[in-house]
Nucleic acid binder design. Structure first.
Ligand code: ZN
Ligand code: ZN
Ligand code: ZN
Ligand code: ZN
Lengths: 131, 131
DNA sequence: CTTGACCCTATAGTCGATAGAGGGTGCAGC
DNA sequence: GCTGCACCCTCTATCGACTATAGGGTCAAG
């Protein structure tokens, strides 16, 4: 593999073509050189970087967090404390979201269990939503 | 209480003023009559409806789901099966989100635990993100 | 009569993409 | 050479659920 078209890069990273162009536009993925016909031509470094981005996204990091992780990962001599910190902060984000959703689920189960059938006018669900 | 200004309605429902205007714009809350000075004047029915909307939102229903719930709740003679169905479908939504986030959290914990300190170049976190 | 809190409209921005219009490029088969 | 087709290009708009800002108008207290 010497160079990849945007479609090939998309296939190799399970990303949509438009998403790759979007990452370029917001400065997350550097603009690659172009062919004679103005096609983007990607190299291994782009592939690596995009894989990194997609892996982070799959872990729920925001694009801003990904940007920071990318910057940090380039400073190889630096102490990795900041990386550590970013990951644990994000873990806290995720855990808080889970806790919030658990509360919703419990409340929804409670409301749902209260339905005794009949008409909407009698339904306890609607009642529970209209306090 | 006879009529409420938008600010009073906002305070009574823990909603932002702009959000109320937004709900009106998308047709979720009916446009109220106006005062001589072109101020919105809300009545009890608006308060009830907005409370219903906010309660649904707090339970994580989308505005489209809320719209359906509002429509259903108006048909008091109808069988409440659809309401039941909507609520359980949403509970499934929430449970799926929780399951997804649990997976992320587990993976993040795993990655985080792998860090042995040192430089970014040696960090197992960065390694884990660069497969 | 002025101050300040409140209200009005209209427009643009957030995040992370996704969709579509309207066109250009490159390659295989005929 | 020519046609068809997959792929690529840019630009703009859209999604959900708001939020923010600009540039005004209204109203009651002091
Ligand atoms: Zn995060
Ligand atoms: Zn019921
Ligand atoms: Zn739902
Ligand atoms: Zn580390």
């Amino acid at each position: 593999m010497k160079e990849l078209s945007i479609g090939a890069l998309a296939a190799a990273t399970d990303t949509k073509v438009v998403t790759i162009r979007y990452y370029e536009k917001i400065g997350l993925l550097p603009a690659p050189p172009r062919s004679a016909g103005n096609y983007r031509l990607y190299r291994q470094s782009h592939l690596d970087r995009l894989r990194f981005i997609r892996r982070c996204r799959a872990l729920g990091f925001t694009l801003e967090e990904v940007r920071e992780l990318l910057e940090l990962s380039a400073e190889t001599e630096r102490d990795c404390g900041k990386v550590d910190q970013l990951v644990s902060a994000h873990l806290v984000d995720v855990q808080r979201k889970i806790a919030d959703l658990e509360k919703l689920a419990a409340e929804l189960r409670r409301i749902h269990a209260s339905c005794r059938g009949g008409t909407v006018g009698e339904c306890r669900i609607i009642e529970a939503l209209s306090p």
